[in-house]
Design a protein around this nucleic acid. Structure first.
Lengths: 220, 220
DNA sequence: TTTGTCAAGATCGTTGAACAATATTTCAAC
DNA sequence: GTTGAAATATTGTTCAACGATCTTGACAAA
């Protein structure tokens, strides 16, 4: 029938699928995710689903309350601030020790150009996506698999927060040029300045997001 | 009968117990961990055990091979080096931005004194444990819950590597005085120098561990 | 109307058994 | 001793069951 290859274990596939539902906003923050309902909807057993839930709970995307079920995490200002503390440490640290010819630098440059192209086409979704790729590339400068994996989780959590906000133009567009400056600094072998610039970027970005959050909180 | 409180879900309790077995060396790296055998030994169902396995696999303590089972991760030189890259970034970054009166500084100082006391009593196990607490306190300077959690996982992985080595005196004892210097620098409001010193510490520590690893690898 | 109690219903937590899919081992044949 | 195929063991996944816990709603008391 529809038996695709899908060599992944069911739990991992589930985790991936649910993660993308969360990031895409298909599942709203705070929403309850019932085991019975979901296992039926996704045609898997409750047990397999529970394995996936454990993974996503550990990633911070889902929240688990004993005997009550799992809920989509609702990002708070505190969690946004925590995430930005992490980003400042990791991204600035990775930049500060970056080497001009590291492969990730090319990825950074490419992400910037992609973002610009999307901006010219008014594709703000694309701009946001390219922006995420830029920062992932920055972390990749550190050459650490564990750091990359950790950052991927952090980024997913952040995207959950973005979903609450909408208006990706205002969120991402102003930062394309800052990203450009940062890559350029690295390309010119000035890592310390790049790190400093990234610090400013993150401070600004955090402020924008917290501001947007305030409004949402007021509205609710 | 023996129904203790143990309010934790079974999977979480299992993960905790198995983690401590791994860290204590009760389970050898490379060893196979059979679902059937373990679920019987720990008196839990296979399903619950699998949930715990997923957690520990994500933490990097166990390794999962499709249709073959889970195995205790065997630390490699590559993983040690990766972990030290992470540590350099996080610990030095946390120190560089540390504030003299941060609560974690007291924890750092306390860890150093505890380590010295254990050293005087030739309790090298205790020295190692205090050393771990010192570095956890350093990370705590960053005030990030996510970073603390991430570092806890990294530390557990590292301890898995230590288990392969033995000889905790040689591994930890030489570093007590360096830790002391680092706290003192922070207490005197010189974070940049503390970060620099930590960088030296980590470079040295990494070298010692890799050296010990070489011998083990040769022996095997 | 408000509050408190209690039973009914829903959902989670955990277990045990079952069976298909995949590895591993055994062992006969060459 | 190699090869190949059957027998065995283990994992992957599902299902059904049942106690524990939470939620709901009815109903009585104030």
């Amino acid at each position: 029938m529809v038996e695709m290859a899908e060599s992944l274990p069911v739990a991992d596939r589930l985790a991936r699928d649910i993660r993308s539902m969360l990031i895409s906003g298909e599942l709203q923050p705070g929403q309850r995710v019932s085991e019975a309902a979901f296992s039926e909807r996704l045609n898997v057993s409750r047990n397999s689903l529970r394995e996936a839930f454990r993974l996503l709970t550990k990633e911070g995307l889902l929240q688990h309350e004993a005997n009550r079920g799992v809920f989509v995490s609702v990002p708070s200002m505190a969690s946004i601030m925590d995430i930005y503390r992490v980003r400042r440490l990791i991204e600035c640290g990775a930049l500060a020790q970056a080497w001009r010819l590291h492969p990730a630098v090319k990825a950074m440059r490419q992400a910037v150009e992609t973002a610009k192209a999307h901006r010219d086409r008014n594709d703000w979704q694309g701009v946001g996506s390219a922006n995420m790729m830029f920062h992932a590339a920055v972390v990749d400068l550190s050459d650490s698999a564990r750091l990359n994996a950790f950052y991927a989780g952090i980024a997913a959590e952040l995207r959950l927060g973005f979903g609450l906000l909408g208006d990706p133009e205002h969120l991402h567009a102003p930062f394309i040029d800052m990203n450009d400056e940062i890559v350029t600094l690295i390309e010119n072998d000035r890592p310390a300045e790049a790190a400093g610039r990234m610090n400013e970027y993150l401070t600004l970005s955090e402020r924008v997001i917290l501001k947007a959050f305030e409004k949402v909180s007021d509205g609710a």
